[in-house]
């Protein structure tokens, strides 16, 4: 589904990612974990084709990722994705016109689910509601890859809860592959199948959440604590 083949990305002299290889399967929820600046965002942008590797290849559904991958990849950046003067409805119309897999019906359903009103101006929304709206836009598409960059950062527990519930209720978990980049692990651990750990652009490891518990008796967060202490 998604393959990183010896991927390196340099920003100037700074190493974004160095020589990373892994491959992801369809229908799983992955956590991309690591402290800030570990290369998580870069990895997501590479999959979305918004950044190209300095060396190596990123393969998405058999093709080298480029900007056109957006047809099959949903990417939610950490920063604001909205035009400030827009109403929620404007944003939905815009997405509908750009992405063939966008469903307005599903968007309305999701707005209901998240308690958002179409006529609200985006600049008047609270931070939490913006986070919710981002997810509405993402989940209204059917693309097979869903990339979320720090979807919980700075949001209160209620909003986090509604985002997790929204994800679980609306993703097509047999067909869609979800990658969540985050440094806040504890709350989403039960959500994840597998975890990829990065640190300073280096690949630390990839493992199954349940296996780690079965074999080592460790939760991800404990594993991370031990690894980063070393």
């Amino acid at each position: 589904m998604i393959d990183f083949r010896s991927v390196s990305k340099k920003y100037g002299r700074h190493n974004g990612l160095s020589n990373i290889s892994f491959s992801l399967e369809q229908g799983k929820i992955y956590g991309l974990l690591g402290p800030n600046g570990s290369g998580k965002s870069t990895a997501l942008k590479l999959i979305a084709g918004l950044v190209s590797p300095t060396s190596g290849q990123v393969i998405v559904k058999g093709k080298e990722a480029n900007r056109k991958a957006a047809a099959d990849v949903i990417y939610l950046t950490e920063v604001d994705i909205f035009y400030p003067s827009f109403k929620i409805k404007d944003m939905i119309d815009y997405y509908d016109s750009q992405f063939q897999d966008f469903s307005v019906i599903k968007a309305r359903e999701l707005l209901d689910f998240m308690n958002l009103e179409e006529d609200r101006k985006i600049k008047n929304l609270s931070k939490g509601n913006r986070g919710r709206l981002k997810l509405v836009l993402a989940l209204s598409r059917q693309a097979s890859v869903l990339l979320l960059d720090e979807p919980f950062s700075g949001l209160d527990p209620m909003v986090r809860d509604s985002i997790v519930k929204g994800l679980l209720s609306y993703i097509d978990f047999e067909k869609q592959t979800v990658i969540i980049a985050t440094h806040e692990i504890d709350e989403i651990e039960p959500l994840l199948d597998d975890v990829i750990a990065l640190s300073d652009g280096e690949f630390l490891g990839m493992f199954n959440v349940e296996e780690l518990r079965e074999k080592e008796g460790l939760s991800i967060i404990e594993w991370m604590r031990r690894t980063f202490k070393e």
Binding site: D161, L168, S169, F173, P190, L191, L192, D193, V209, E210
Partner: peptide, 17 residues
């Protein structure tokens, strides 16, 4: 499986298992 996953806040594959 999905309802259970939403209710428990857990990965659907985990519920399947």
């Amino acid at each position: 499986v999905r309802d259970m996953a939403v209710h428990a806040g857990v990965n659907p594959n985990t519920i399947q298992r």
